[in-house]
């Protein structure tokens, strides 16, 4: 089975399950859901799974779970941090845009990494240079402008886990 067909089947199953959860058990609705899920998977289904993975599926899911827990914790910290900043009478910020490097290659991995950076304390992704593996990050409290030190401070929190999930 080719990769595109596999991807389309997965999209069909996902779309159909979501439809079933949202609608009732009426036969007409189920048939309509199957038709719509089929159309969606035929048109846009080949984008979900874009490449093969060497690592075991269970291994990847365990790391995805680890990532999720870590992400939630970082997100709570980010929100408390912002609440502290806006409630402080002087608004103690020291903003700037810094450059960090990433070793992740796949689009999905980079997307999840940049989204995580945006939702974690004090950082917001501005742009990505995919060929060079560089990410520009707006940092509300700049501690260092050195590229490697910034990478360590911002990117390394998630990068090793995401490498296990996606690469």
């Amino acid at each position: 089975m080719t990769l595109a067909v596999k991807s389309k089947i997965i999209v069909f199953i996902l779309a159909f399950v979501v439809w079933l959860a949202l609608s009732g058990t009426d036969v007409q609705q189920i048939v309509a859901g199957a038709v719509v899920a089929l159309l969606v998977s035929l048109i846009a289904g080949s984008f979900l799974v874009a490449s093969h993975n060497q690592k075991h599926l269970l291994h990847r899911w365990l790391y995805a779970l680890l990532y999720f827990v870590k992400f939630l914790w970082e997100m709570v910290k980010a929100n408390v941090h912002v609440a502290y900043l806006v409630l402080h009478p002087n608004v103690p910020i020291k903003p700037g845009i810094v450059k960090i490097k990433t070793n992740l290659k796949k689009d999905a991995a980079i997307t999840v990494l940049t989204n995580s950076i945006t939702l974690t304390p004090g950082t917001l992704t501005v742009d990505v240079n995919e060929e060079k593996g560089e990410i520009y990050v707006h940092w509300i409290d700049v501690k260092t402008t050195d590229v490697d030190a910034c990478t360590k401070e911002i990117g390394s929190r998630f990068e090793s886990i995401l490498a296990e999930v996606f690469e």
């Binding site: 020291k94 903003p95 700037g96 845009i97 810094v98 450059k99 501005v126 742009d127 240079n129 560089e134 520009y136 700049v142 402008t145």
Partner: peptide
């Protein structure tokens, strides 16, 4: 603002 690395790219 302390630094703007994006400006230089």
């Amino acid at each position: 603002t302390v630094v703007d690395a994006y400006e230089d790219d």
